[in-house]
Design a protein around this nucleic acid. Sequence first.
RNA 1: GCUCGGAUGGUGGAAUAGGUAGACACGCAGGACUUAAAAUCCUGUGGGCAGAAAUGCCCGUACGGGUUCGAUUCCCGUUCCGAGCACCA
Length: 917
Amino acid sequence: MEYNFIEIEKKWQAYWAANKTFEVDADPSKPKYYVLDMFPYPSGAGLHVGHPLGYIASDIYSRYKRLRGFNVLHPMGYDAFGLPAEQYAIQTGQHPATTTENNINRYREQMDRIGFSYDWSREVRTCDPGYYKWTQWAFLQMFKHYYNNDTNKAEPIDQLISIFEKEGNLYVNAACGDVAKFDAAQWNAFSEKEKSDVLMQYRIAYQGETSVNWCAKLGTVLANDEVQGGLSIRGGYPVEQKKMKQWQLRVSAYAERLLQDMDQLQWTDSLKDMQRNWIGKSQGAEMVFKVGDYDMTIFTTRADTVFGVTFMVLAPESEWVEKLTTPEQKEAVEAYLKEAKKKTERERMAETRKVTGVFTGSYAVNPLTNEQVPVWVSEYVLAGYGTGAIMAVPAHDSRDYAFAKQFNLPIIPLIEGCDVSQESFDAKEGIMCNSGFLNGMTVKEAIPAAIDYVEKMGIGHRKINYRLRDAIFSRQRYWGEPFPIYYKDGIPTPVPEEELPLQLPEIDKFLPTESGEPPLARAENWTYNGYPLETSTMPGFAGSSAYYLRYMDPHNDSALVSAEADGYWRNVDLYIGGTEHATGHLIYSRFWNKFLYDMGCVVEKEPFQKLINQGMIQGRSNFVYRIKNTNTFVSLGLKDQYDTTEIHVDVNIVNNDKLDIEAFKNWMPDYATAEFILEDGEYICGYAVEKMSKSMFNVVNPDNICRDYGADTLRLYEMFLGPLEQSKPWDTKGIDGVNRFLRKLWKMFFNREGALCVTDEKPSAAELKSLHKLIKKVGDDIEAFSFNTSVSAFMIALNELNDLKSHNKEILENILVLLSPFAPHITEELWSILGHEQSISYAKFPEYVEAYTIENSFEYPVSFNGKMRFKLELSRSLSPKEVEEIVRANENTAKYLGGNTIKKVIVVPSKIINIVC
RNA sequence: GCUCGGAUGGUGGAAUAGGUAGACACGCAGGACUUAAAAUCCUGUGGGCAGAAAUGCCCGUACGGGUUCGAUUCCCGUUCCGAGCACCA
């Protein structure tokens, strides 16, 4: 009987689907385990061999947990709203829904071939109205809540309104924008519009004028994590800063909780670091500097350096600029502002070394020295952080230093012995000098001492700042969730919840309108009760922020997730996905979850308990070398003798870096007449590790691998390639090894005639030893996500059993169970051939028995130097005399052991390898 | 610039509460089977030296130091590579 993987895989995939093997229900009698993959955006290119890496890992873990008796929730869906489908629609006129549907079908087909154990009855698609109803619902809840800093949670905005009616906002401590103080009488006298404007400053989902990343080419704003180096991540178009009115989410209100609650998560330190960095907490002080009649507040983390302040700097966008510019400087300042405004973000970055600035003409008074220092304006101060104004200490801040050098401002060193003639001394260490009452203190002492002092003087106070900004939540695009908001006489008003979902309207063209309105403005009757509806749509992260909750209860019409389903499944135990979402999705999702937690909708504070970042699978490109101006190609080893051009060649016509010359000639018409300079009769190609992409001809399609080797081989090989979390290049050439392993396994069950040849006798000690070593290793490795070494362990065990000529049924059955998470199809087939009627998924993970793995254990009481007693546990039997010799031969070791009682010494001939005292 | 991670044979990678470095696999070389090829199986495979051989000795985990009886593993410094952030006061 042959190992016909094509038939076997088709058969069991159909079996699982027909028997609903992997569909689960909440079952309080069993412990739950929730394994989640980051759902994919279904792109037109389909899956390449890198995409399923994480899915395979999570599938192995899910199947493993089932064998361990857990009720495993393992769902999959699609992040289906997004820019590529919309851009494709603009170019071709094809509706994004159609493109998306086609792509999803393709993805599904590809995933099904790999044999995943998803519960497809729970599939979600973010573009499905039944799904985005709850995205819109969550947005409305955020619109209807504000963040109370005293209770440290989101609370209904109605409560805030009743407070306003009673006492205004005088005693309200809430996360909010810029609002003037008012009392109850003033509030009650406000018009509807004024009230709406005030409340807008408090809402968690709010509309506000802000500086945004505007991408003219895409015609939309982008979030900070969608921009990199001044270019949009999608498309790579220039992005500029622009003041616009946008919907935003008050993520910043949750900064501290997002930071604190990370401690309870089992995420990698590097990922936590990335989030900590992004949140960017810094402790410092706000301090008031007098400028004429004004009190100007600045933020600093180095209160100890106030004695070294020699100038002040304002951000160009700061409101102080206008107030402080003197008539004489007006012209110069305005010219500078105009210049700064014109620059895009990208230009600013390119000129990062160039120091620019202008003097306002005003002077501030240093509150500790009473000296006057000039106030400047410069781009290097950001309006969005702190107060948009800083005190400059050139001696101890490199940016202030560069500025001082450029404009010839004084530099006063404040730390004993530091040299600031060439560069600033930024380190927070040393003994203070030139600093009045701080002299003689270390920097670490001086910082709190200085803050205490200014607090006592009433000119400042401790303050914590975060870099984390509120998330811009509107996009000027078509293919996203519409906002359930209409404008009643200019007042943003929510569409009633019971009328959700507010469905995306049909439009004829997907471009912005001629007047620059978003595409939704093209829709006819895009109104609610005659009032205009919001024309922006929500960004990509909206739909992906709570999808893990929806999987728990995907068909519920009356709630995002029922209390029962949420109470049982709680949160994701294991989340697997790429690290690229560290500062996007993984922050937004945590924020979203915390908001729902505040509302009492979910029971867990954090959505993803354990998180594994699978590495990227890169492409391995091959090159041929064409001699310039000829059609002759020279092999790698000889190319240095010629002037050549490196050309990518399709990796599918290269085997072990050897070019299939005939295939190459047929590859492209240009090469039909190509000539070759060979080495040893072969054409050897060069190679490089690059991103897997069509243009580099290095894309390997999983469908082809499944066709040629089978899904089980693909699964094993992807795991065998290296540690899950590490990025590594795909190289098909190693795949024969795992394929051979599966064929060997198959052969152990059948004799030459193809008849089943397993035997029923009791397993031998050697067989049991191999098996139980494997049980231990595989169990430990899966728990540690070290799948590559467990694949090796299977190979070793099989080699051992082969050497023993073992066909023992009991042993083989156990091995099938152990292997079933990795290679589900072949194990199901063999399992059923052995006479089992139920799927192997219902088997139990074998119990490890340590006794089987210890072959020889001897204890030798040995005296050495007349003092020590050795108790030896040996990997083979040795005479006591032999042992003594060995110990004597390792005299240094013996010295080290002096006086201790040795419990265990593992000995190999002539060397001691392990000593346990 | 700051933060984090990494460097082991021809290749992917094993091995760390410090204890036989190179498991497993690919590739390569040789052999068996075959008219031949494929497939399969067997043997060898870090480098150097000695030996007819079994084998023995020396060197070796990016580089330089340190701790230790013993370091791929821990500490300090250097180089290179990768990822993230980027004027966050």
